[in-house]
Amino acid sequence: MKKLINSVDNVVSEALLGMEAAHPDRLRIDHANRVVLRKDGPVSGKVGLVSGGGSGHEPMHGGFVGMGMLDAACAGEVFTSPVPDQIMAATHAVDGGAGVLHIVKNYTGDVMNFEMAAEMAAAERGIRVEAVVVDDDVAVTDSLYTAGRRGVGTTVLLEKIVGAAAEAGRDLDALTEIATRISGQGRSMGLALTSCTVPAAGKPTFELADDEMELGIGIHGEPGRERLPMASAAQAAQMLVEPVLADLDFTGSPVICFVNGMGGTPLLEQYLMYGEIAKVLQAEGVTVARSLVGSYITSLEMAGLSLTLLKADEDMLTLWDAPVNTPGLRWGC
């Protein structure tokens, strides 16, 4: 294992120290609870947005804290859910008097711990908390970590759109409604060319031969639909698009198309793949209104890609275009 770390035990805490040093203008860190917080929060009268999950998916979630997105992100150990006390601390820290929305990827530990934290926040602090669970991965119905579909790329799009709506002053009920709608209208599919190595494990999560790829992989290295011979970019694009379109009709509405690198795939290949995916979508009558290409929800150093399509409307597109200023996503400001 070759990694630029000091010790396996301190990877997350030392990464948070580095994030704080790099972005003192936007972030503050609650190191005791490993929570990344918006520098100017809590914002009075604004709904607080809290997300989080295991570390190793950067910039998700801490890199999306700031104006126009999240108010707080809880950093669990690598590929390990944050604990209820962390989430409770984040919920309290972002409460500006208008309630808090929890944005949760559908992994069993995340769902359970966010539910417990919401109950604690209501009982101990009187904070109204709502939650939306993202379950957009069409690869498998159940997995090693979930009951139901996994939550992946739609989470990034949801945090951006709902973050803009919160910034505009919409109330908790309105944010919960649009977040639920986004979760229901987003679909994702991924593939891996290599595994990744969790520092505590010290060896790859799984093995892939040089001439193989895994279709439908999860962001923690979970098994996918099938292991296949290595394919061309054009063939891989078909493999990603077809199951997404088979699961939801994306014609007749504007679509946000998100091509995401898993951590070890260069932008050269990501853009090449976007071009191939765009050809397939055009042939299928899907109208792409907005696009995002880059490594935004990763799996350490895994080489691979995921595709996310979101069936949007004009309100979502307006919110997508709104200014955002976070370490991981920034435009319009």
Rank of each mutant, 00 (worst) to 15 (best):
D9L: 10
V43P: 03
N10T: 15
S7W: 04
V43I: 09
A22M: 05
A21W: 07
I29T: 01
M1G: 12
V43A: 01
G41V: 02
G41Q: 13
M1I: 12
M19L: 15
M19F: 02
R28T: 13
S7T: 09
V8L: 09
H31Y: 10
E14D: 15
D9F: 13
L17V: 15
E20S: 10
V11Q: 06
K39Y: 08
L17F: 13
G41P: 07
L16S: 00
E14N: 00
N10G: 14
A32T: 10
M19D: 00
R34T: 08
D30Y: 02
A22F: 04
H31G: 02
R28Y: 03
K2I: 14
R26Y: 05
S7F: 08
S44F: 08
R28I: 12
E20L: 12
D30R: 05
M19Q: 08
R26E: 05
S13D: 15
E20F: 02
E20K: 09
A21H: 03
I5F: 04
V11G: 04
V11P: 05
M1Y: 13
L17A: 12
E14H: 06
R28N: 08
R38W: 10
N6Q: 12
L4V: 02
V43R: 04
D40C: 15
K2C: 14
K39N: 07
K3Y: 08
E14R: 05
L17S: 13
V43L: 01
N6L: 15
V43E: 09
R34Q: 04
R38G: 03
D25L: 12
S7R: 03
P24C: 01
R38S: 02
D30I: 02
G18L: 09
D40S: 14
A21Q: 13
G18A: 09
E20Y: 06
L16V: 01
I5V: 13
P24E: 03
G18C: 02
R38V: 04
A15R: 11
L16W: 06
V35C: 11
R34Y: 02
D25S: 11
K3M: 08
A15Q: 05
D25N: 03
K2T: 15
N33Y: 10
L4G: 07
A32F: 06
G18H: 07
S13L: 14
D30P: 08
A15L: 11
A32L: 07
H23G: 06
G18S: 11
L4C: 14
L17I: 14
L16P: 00
A32R: 12
L27T: 04
A21D: 11
V43T: 00
K3H: 03
V11W: 01
S44W: 00
H31W: 10
N6D: 07
D30K: 05
S13T: 15
H31C: 09
L4Q: 12
G18I: 01
E14W: 11
R28Q: 05
I29E: 00
N10H: 13
R28H: 12
D30T: 12
L27Y: 02
E14T: 10
H23Q: 05
R38H: 09
V36Y: 00
A15C: 15
D30E: 02
K3P: 03
V35S: 01
H23A: 00
A21I: 06
V12Q: 10
A15T: 09
R38Q: 08
S7K: 10
R34F: 00
K39V: 15
D30F: 07
S44T: 14
P42S: 12
H23Y: 06
V8A: 12
I29S: 00
K2L: 14
E20A: 13
H23N: 08
A32W: 11
L27F: 06
A15E: 05
R28P: 06
A22P: 04
